[in-house]
């Protein structure tokens, strides 16, 4: 069963913290999180400038309800952490993770900074991203190096393709082994795998809303719950793609209803003829997911999935409401401040 993350991360935008128009507009994009970048999108000569912008940017990006996240530099970990671990920061993204001792060192620094800066212990999560072959080889040790590692994935993308010497945009999955190792490590450690099913992308587009929706929809149906992107055009399609449909909710309610019946029989599973239970006004099974065309299997696995889906919808609704209220508060405050 999909494990639900502590904080929802259906959609997120990664942006250079040194670009004010991105940061200043981020709060009304509707994302679950904003990933302020100190790494690849910030040139070396601007690293110091960028670090000094993070503290004040946290409250800028999260005023619309998004969680503030920061991607630091692998080789500048300590300096970056000192600049980013401030109240309001939800997670530090650590790129090119290769060894457990790196994560343990991060954990130690974050623990010290939380104490010094009045942040409740354990608040700041670590997102560890695997982008090299060495990272793949050490995946399990990395994900288990700290209980702060709540987001674990990678083994694909530009850095991985460069490290392996493989092409980036092809019509097949060139990262099957690495992605499998990383996802298996996350699952074995009981952490949320940050993964998506393979969907071909031969253009490299980062702003295609149809593709963003298709990928989020496929990810949700596979049980994944984490998304993210680079362009504002993909935020809404991602949120929509990660939302359970009305049909799926009706189906989940039907599955649980049937499972409760099964529970009373002493059986562990049953096949239900979908046609015989399709009544108006009642929860309905989805024909598209049928086994043998018209039969559905009901067992503890289907019940667990249904239960998780209902909880997921509820959490999505709560999160959307939380963000809407935050945006409304900002709008009201700005209206009150504006002359006339």
């Amino acid at each position: 069963m999909a494990s639900t993350p502590r904080r929802l991360k259906r959609s997120g935008l990664t942006m250079p913290v040194v670009t004010p128009r991105f940061i200043n507009n981020a709060w009304h994009r509707g994302c679950d999180y904003i990933n302020m970048d100190l790494e690849d999108s910030v040139p070396p000569r601007l690293k110091d400038v960028a670090r000094n912008l993070i503290r004040e940017s946290i409250s800028v990006v999260n005023k619309g309800g998004a969680d503030a996240v920061c991607r630091i530099n692998h080789d500048l970990m300590e300096a970056d952490l000192n600049a980013v671990v401030w109240p309001g920061l939800m997670m530090v993204n650590y790129p090119k993770a290769e060894y457990a001792h790196e994560i343990q060192r991060m954990d130690g620094i974050i623990t010290r900074l939380e104490a010094e800066r009045g942040i409740r212990p354990g608040t700041v999560e670590i997102g560890a991203n695997i982008e090299t072959a060495v990272g793949v080889a050490n995946a399990y040790e990395i994900v288990t190096a700290s209980s702060r590692v709540m987001d674990f994935g990678g083994a694909s993308g530009y850095d991985m393709s460069r490290d392996l010497g493989v092409e980036m945009f092809v019509g097949f999955d060139q990262f099957v082994y690495g992605k499998g190792e990383v996802e298996l490590a996350a699952r074995a450690a009981g952490r949320e795998p940050h993964a998506v099913p393979f969907t071909p992308n031969i253009t490299g587009s980062v702003s295609d809303p149809d593709r963003a929706f298709a990928e989020a929809d496929a990810a949700r149906k596979c049980g994944f719950r984490i998304g993210g992107g680079l362009h504002p055009a993909v935020v809404e399609p991602q949120i929509r793609g990660f939302a359970a449909t009305d049909d799926e909710i009706s189906d989940a309610m039907w599955v649980l209803q049937e499972y409760r019946k099964l529970d009373r029989t002493g059986e562990t599973w049953v096949q239900v003829d979908v046609a015989s239970v399709d009544r108006e006004g009642s929860p309905r099974p989805m024909a598209a997911d049928s086994y043998l065309g018209r039969h559905r299997v009901i067992d503890r696995y289907e019940a667990a999935r249904a239960e998780e889906l209902l909880q997921w919808r509820s959490r999505c609704q709560e999160r959307d409401q939380e963000k809407a209220e935050a945006v409304a508060r900002v709008n009201a405050a700005e209206a009150a401040e504006s002359p006339g």
Partner: peptide, 9 residues
């Protein structure tokens, strides 16, 4: 089922 692995597109 045990690992909750589901069909891809």
């Amino acid at each position: 089922l045990v690992m909750d692995l589901r069909p891809e597109p």
